[in-house]
Design a protein around this nucleic acid. Structure first.
Lengths: 149, 149
DNA sequence: CTCATTTAGATGCAGTTGCATTCACATCAG
DNA sequence: CTGATGTGAATGCAACTGCATCTAAATGAG
């Protein structure tokens, strides 16, 4: 039972990622909407609701570096899509809250995003294949089984 | 037979991609080596051998925009990893050729790259799962079956 | 041949990223 | 309380990216 080559996974994964990403970003741009990085942040804020989120929480959720979140939030704030609120209890911190405009834009983006994703992914798989692929990709995210390291 | 949600594929795919990419780039940086974009270009030039490659050919192979290749080649040339040669037969064009230093660096990068990839991917799968995943990812790259569009 | 169109590649500019550093507040040992 | 250390967030600078545009050479219609 020979060890499989990880590049047999990585190379198509990277190519597929770039290709899907490009087609979605293109669709968003053509619709005059912001990019996926904005979407992701807006989405997390929407999920958080009135509680809002601290930048460092977004950092974990979005897998972005600290300064990445800081500046992304700057831009979103400048666009009026979020507000920064003082954080009671931690004078260093702040709470980011979605505005109505932000929610509106996220909804518009979702229409384009989900449609583009549908077109980019669905035609390639049968339902069974899709389920299996999702399952296998999930294994890349969970910690590796201890006996395999 | 319900239609599966493409985001069940996209979300883990995007996360896995970012996570693997980050760990490989980190390993390269720690080794004092250039990033994966440099590797990809060096690799293509090495494959091309004495014939070299035209920038527009790299553009297709690497899925980069035209100006991306132009500037990436600038940097590699400045680092002494490739040379630009006049293109006989097309006065607009040029041929990019790998230098010995470029080949040397690519080899050093490969050691780090392949090792990091091994650690990032292999522990998560049995050989059978790995083969299946590679196969399914491949389907994302080929044109979709006509009857599914 | 001549002019219009297309193709290969470079580049100015504005916006974005990465890195390192900085600032401010929090926390904790004494 | 006081100073040392740690944590949340911003920012200056250099490098990189995207977009639009530009130049030069090739191609093609008349």
């Amino acid at each position: 039972m020979q060890t499989p080559d990880p590049f047999d996974i990585w190379l198509p994964l990277a190519r597929a990622h770039k290709s899907i990403l490009t087609s979605v970003e293109t669709a968003l741009k053509q619709a005059g909407l912001p990019g996926l990085d904005w979407y992701d942040l807006l989405w997390e804020l929407e999920c958080a609701g009135d509680t809002g989120l601290r930048p460092f929480e977004l950092q974990e959720k979005l897998l972005l570096p600290q300064y990445g979140v800081s500046r992304l939030a700057d831009r979103l704030a400048k666009a009026g899509y979020l507000t920064r609120q003082e954080c009671s209890g931690d004078g260093r911190g702040q709470i980011l809250l979605l505005t109505a405009a932000g929610a509106e834009t996220r909804a518009q983006m979702w229409a384009v995003y989900s449609d583009a994703m549908q077109q980019a992914v669905t035609p390639h798989f049968s339902p069974g294949e899709a389920r299996r692929l999702a399952e296998l990709l999930g294994k890349l995210l969970r910690p590796a089984p201890a006996d395999k390291i």
